[in-house]
Simulated assay, not measured.
Amino acid sequence: MREAKVELDDLIVPIFVDETISKPLEIRSMPGYYRIPVEGVVEEVEKCLDLGLNSFIFFGIPSYKDEIGSSAFDKNGVIQKAVRLVRKEFPDVVIVTDVCLCEYTTHGHCGIVKDGKIMNDETLPILGKIAVSHAEAGADIVAPSGMMDGMVKAIRSALDDEGFTDVAIMSYSAKYASSFYGPFREAADSGYKFGDRRSYQADIHNGDEALREVELDLKEGADIVMVKPALAYLDIVRRVKETFRVPTCAYNVSGEYSMVKASAIQGWLDEKDIVYEILTSIKRAGADLIITYHAKDFARWMKEGFDW
């Protein structure tokens, strides 16, 4: 009689691909999670496939950065190389790519910066170029995460103009200016050098704002919408799903993962039970897909016969 059940097909595995390393590097603030070298990405995907996981989202750590994030749309960039390797070896896996500038710019912001200000409109053509380069490499879904106004329309137009009409867009439509992202900034080397991201990410106090953002992205051509983070915003997941009835993803972010891991290491919580309860709550709230750093552990426990 259970109303919500987490399946492995619901989960998307984040992979941090780092072209500056030659062996996996553990992320200090995310115990048990690693940056993977480009040469090791096929092996990492293969391990996940053996656990029953088939969907992945790639984040890149490039070897060089500049003011406009040009390595993000370099045809030989870190994500482009990783996607080509995985697509060649595993043609049937689902590959999602993060489309943003923060990992690739010297200032660490998600848009072009001029005189200390984030330039929304100047950023849009660059996001289109990034998305096209990912599609050319073999991505199934591109996921713009910068919360720039008009980003979905710009990316859809760029993809269609280059013939990638079947490449889907999963938009970070309701991405909040949250404090839960701290460990990710270490993982992806994407910390900002000045200010903050409140001028373009959603205000944590607002719910109606998220619905307006989702509605705009859907009108511009988004195929899947996302709420990020998940746990502190389950009400938003529910409102988005009930209002729009479209494919909805929730991002169970790095801070949420690290809190569980830290407590489990201290012996304060039962990690398996807590992770199962968290993922179930996200699914129950209305998420069709969940991006989560717990995916591999969860799949391993299921394979070992864990039953809650």
Rank of each mutant, 00 (worst) to 15 (best):
A230Y: 10
D208S: 09
V240H: 05
V83K: 06
V13M: 05
I118E: 08
A143R: 09
K228E: 10
L159I: 06
T97W: 10
L289K: 09
D203F: 10
D189A: 15
Y276T: 11
D235C: 04
R28I: 12
E136T: 11
F90Y: 14
G267N: 07
A299W: 13
L124I: 15
V253D: 00
D50Y: 11
P229E: 01
A177V: 07
G163M: 05
G146C: 12
K75G: 12
T105L: 07
G32Q: 07
E44N: 08
D9A: 15
Q80E: 12
Y200P: 09
D217N: 14
K81H: 01
D196K: 03
N120K: 02
A262I: 02
K65G: 10
V237P: 08
D223H: 14
I112E: 02
N206R: 13
F184H: 11
L53G: 04
W308E: 08
G116A: 06
I79R: 02
K303A: 12
K228C: 09
I112Q: 00
G286W: 04
G77L: 09
K175M: 09
E209Y: 08
F56K: 10
V93K: 06
T106H: 05
F58Y: 14
I36P: 00
S63G: 15
C102K: 00
V6A: 08
V142K: 02
D98I: 09
G255A: 05
D196S: 10
N120V: 00
L216I: 15
V96M: 14
I204T: 13
G255R: 03
D297K: 15
M147F: 04
V240C: 08
K303G: 15
R197C: 02
I126G: 05
I265S: 11
Y64C: 05
D166Y: 12
G150W: 13
W301Q: 11
D273V: 08
G52C: 03
V45D: 00
T20C: 02
G191P: 01
V86R: 00
V253L: 04
V42Q: 00
D121V: 10
F164P: 12
G138A: 03
G108F: 10
V78I: 13
G108Q: 09
G40S: 13
N206H: 14
I290F: 00
V152D: 03
E43F: 13
I236E: 03
A143H: 08
N120S: 09
S29L: 09
G111K: 06
A158Q: 05
D166W: 07
S55E: 10
G163A: 08
V113G: 01
I155A: 10
H109N: 05
I57F: 06
G150P: 03
K5Q: 11
A230Q: 02
C249M: 15
G207R: 14
G150S: 12
L85M: 14
L8M: 06
F306V: 03
G286D: 03
I95L: 15
R212L: 13
G69T: 03
I12P: 10
